[in-house]
């Protein structure tokens, strides 16, 4: 039977809190950028301009075809240096956080755009036609009529995707960035207490994600009764 020794946790708390901050930072930025860029992609995908809809379809399918771990590796090891050589950017030194955020945001945008596309399509076509009939432009009817309704229906799905994203931030281990999981792992590795630290990390993730998913459920119920 394995002997558990939890003594590493108290001393590591400041480092773990710092790691949690990084996890939340990546999650928050990736959600915001992902939703904005995802909305644009969804609108391009649905637009009648063939080039735009092809671009959006290609983008979404490319990012959905490759494992997140590989995307993060590309963003960490290759893409910054391609950009440097093409645009002559100054050579930065610590790209870890920046590349992780960029990788996550662009990757999640592909997933968000699919949710948003479904959301836009769920608003009945008559609404668009009615808005047009009232003399609204395409942009106005999207912004004032279709998107507000679509987003209201999509909020639970978008938040659920956010929970998945938060869990996926643990994959930044590929760039040795100390997010919450990475911090717990590093402490465990240093002290020879991997099992204890990862059980602890798992418990923290569970409590946080469970709480948020219950809030989503509550919101969903309210939405249905409203």
């Amino acid at each position: 039977m394995y002997e558990f020794d939890w003594s590493s946790i108290p001393g590591a708390l400041p480092f773990l809190v710092q790691g949690m901050y990084i996890s939340l930072e990546i999650t928050a930025i990736a959600i915001v950028v992902g939703i904005v860029w995802g909305t644009l992609l969804a609108m391009m995908r649905l637009s009648s301009v063939t080039a735009l809809s092809w671009f959006a379809a290609g983008y979404v399918n490319l990012f959905r075809a490759v494992p997140l771990v590989m995307v993060l590796l590309w963003f960490f090891l290759m893409i910054p240096h391609m950009l440097e050589s093409i645009f002559g950017f100054p050579r930065g030194s610590d790209m870890r956080l920046g590349s992780a955020i960029a990788g996550f945001a662009l990757f999640e945008a592909a997933y968000y755009s699919e949710i948003i596309r479904a959301g836009i399509q769920s608003v009945s076509k008559g609404q668009m036609a009615a808005a047009n009939a009232l003399g609204m432009t395409y942009g106005q009817s999207m912004r004032l009529v279709v998107l507000p309704q679509a987003f209201r229906n999509m909020v639970p799905l978008l938040l659920t995707q956010g929970i998945i994203l938060f869990q996926d931030t643990s994959l930044v281990y590929v760039s040795a960035l100390a997010d919450f999981f990475g911090a717990a792992y590093k402490v465990g590795d240093r002290d020879g207490r991997l099992v204890e630290m990862l059980l602890f990390a798992g418990a923290v993730y569970f409590v946080l994600c469970f709480t948020v998913s219950q809030l989503v459920r509550y919101y969903q119920k309210k939405l249905k009764t409203a």
């Binding site: 240096h81 391609m82 440097e84 050589s85 093409i86 002559g88």
Partner: peptide
């Protein structure tokens, strides 16, 4: 992407 990759500074 592949073609542009070798052009590292």
């Amino acid at each position: 992407t592949l073609l542009s990759a070798p052009a590292f500074a």
